[in-house]
Amino acid sequence: MRYNGAMDLTMERALPGSSAVPDGRRVVKRHSLTTRLAHWIVALAMVVLIMSGFQIFNAAPYLDASDLSNAQHRILSFGTAGTDQAPVGTTTLVGHQFTTTNWLGYTDDGQGGKAARAFPGWITFPGVQDLASGRLWHFFFGWVLTLAGIVYLIVGAVRKDLRLLILRPADLRGLLPMQLYYLRLRKEPPLHGKYNPLQKAGYTVVIFGLIPLVVITGLALSPGIDAIAHPLTTVLGGRQFARTWHFVIMLLLIAFIFGHVFLVAATGFINNMRSMVLGTYRLGKHEGTGP
């Protein structure tokens, strides 16, 4: 282990706005306390929101591409077929039916048995089928996500941290070389600042795109919100369509989380975790601290 002692830290603080010129392999302060707290609060909220979302979804295990519930416009549904003795879980995606027994449709009931339910108990919150509780968890952590996100954005804007993270036209050139480096088709990453071009692209899309969208599409499901703001539900194609978008964006967020966690592990797990827990980080050979 290379970074076990925190004591070789010289704690040089990078000058704000310093260039993308490599700063060598010194240790810098990378994430503010606000960023670190917001990151872990949002991470927890996302996990609970996704799991309680599966719980809520199970109550009506289908998605329609229409304003109102309509089997003609069903793009995804889960069900149980077969006999009572030999139940079969099914997943139907745009008319194509797959057998998904034990995984989807007929699966873990969250109390050690099996039952007719879309998503298994190990991925729902709570594990047992309990729509009322799932909604309470979902809305509580929806507020946690929203409030933590707002604090993060305000503090990030005031401290100018966000500037370093937002993808700019100049970063586009670096996207391909960075991808090739990750794929081991290029020996060295392009020189970059605090975040590399792919990180900027990922974080910009998630922080300014997917997370706001997942909140908005969720709000569009509310009859009370729909009464206040018809256009919101209308642009999404109606309430059931909003439910479909909410689900699709959730899948994109799951894809991001997998990619994010994989890269954290693959690009120096200890150093990366240290930066998001203690705030300090040892720069790579091609990393700077600026934009």
């Binding site: 729902t124 594990g127 809305f139 507020w143």
Partner: peptide
Amino acid sequence: CAPVTNALNDNPTIHGTLTAGS
């Protein structure tokens, strides 16, 4: 997972706190 999420959900203090969202 399910035993943990069920236990958290069954805790009356936690469950009561969640109603703040509502």
